[in-house]
Design a binder for these strands. Sequence first.
DNA 1: ATTAGCATGTTACCTTATAACGTTCGCGAC
DNA 2: GTCGCGAACGTTATAAGGTAACATGCTAAT
Lengths: 170, 170
Amino acid sequence: MKPVGFHQHDHETCKSGGITSAVDYCETRGLQFTPVRRRTLEILLHEHRAMGAYDLLEVLGREGFGSQPPVVYRALEFLVRHGFAHKIERLNAFVGCVHPGADHAPAFLICRQCDAVAETRARPAMALLGDLAGEAGFRVERAVIEAEGLCPNCQEPANPGPESRGKDPK
Amino acid sequence: MKPVGFHQHDHETCKSGGITSAVDYCETRGLQFTPVRRRTLEILLHEHRAMGAYDLLEVLGREGFGSQPPVVYRALEFLVRHGFAHKIERLNAFVGCVHPGADHAPAFLICRQCDAVAETRARPAMALLGDLAGEAGFRVERAVIEAEGLCPNCQEPANPGPESRGKDPK
DNA sequence: ATTAGCATGTTACCTTATAACGTTCGCGAC
DNA sequence: GTCGCGAACGTTATAAGGTAACATGCTAAT
Ligand SMILES: [Zn+2]
Ligand SMILES: [Zn+2]
Ligand SMILES: [Zn+2]
Ligand SMILES: [Zn+2]
């Protein structure tokens, strides 16, 4: 299972999959997938990159939604709580989930050069961490696992600069 | 190798060890372990708990050091850069390092009840994560690994409340 | 029709973090 | 000695991230 985000892939599927998963999930549980929430998720799913709350807010505001912080923070809280988006603690920013629906423990690979963020499954690492913690009597409930480094594209000497930002990880 | 922080231990060793390691390290490399830096580390090492920059700053200010944010952020930057302290991304807060000197990949166990933070070695989890990422062509340079849950003390029904805060994890 | 729940919006505010600039001190070059 | 330099410290000001509290509007149950 390769992480999604760095390599060429059908990104339309990422987008539509993220949305339809959310629609289904909300439908079956009687949750409201309202316009702000939907739009917020759409913006996050636009590319595999983390966005700050205020960047999102600016877009939402321009599109006729509320323009004050609580608007976006509430939408994000909803999306994160139900697993449609994730917060990247390292960046104080948010990404759309690419394994929606599935109950999953995500880990993130963050490229320090082009800012792309790929999501991968953290189960094995989580298990190991859980064991390690368990030996000390600590019970892990959730874990933040965020790796920082260079993505495949940025390792090639050809695209070493920030001018490569925003091109590939669509 | 048990994580340090939750269990009974000689905490004086944590404190003095942290300081003397820093002194030695700085001496051999010609770095300046100045009063603000030293005092900041001392405060952090006081207990196994994460402290916000502004809480630190308040103490420093009261003790005659500068009272403006850059003072503490610069000290923290130095301590973190050289591995004497760590930032807990999840909490936007800082802890003193309990494995100073050693080149180490730390993972943190954060108790959501009593706020104690234990540091443990993340090597195995890092290795696994590195392999996983490597398959995708991603080169991991550093990783944030922070588990949240209940520490041994807070799992006992006897100390379930926030009134247990601050007692044990000295 | 009334009430309760939930989503949205706003104002105001708090916390966390950094940019920019001036001063001081120690130290090697001259 | 003193000139010049780099590193550390201090300040002011401001950016960036996040929340509390309250008012309005919708819908669904009673
Ligand atoms: Zn995609
Ligand atoms: Zn996900
Ligand atoms: Zn200790
Ligand atoms: Zn450490």
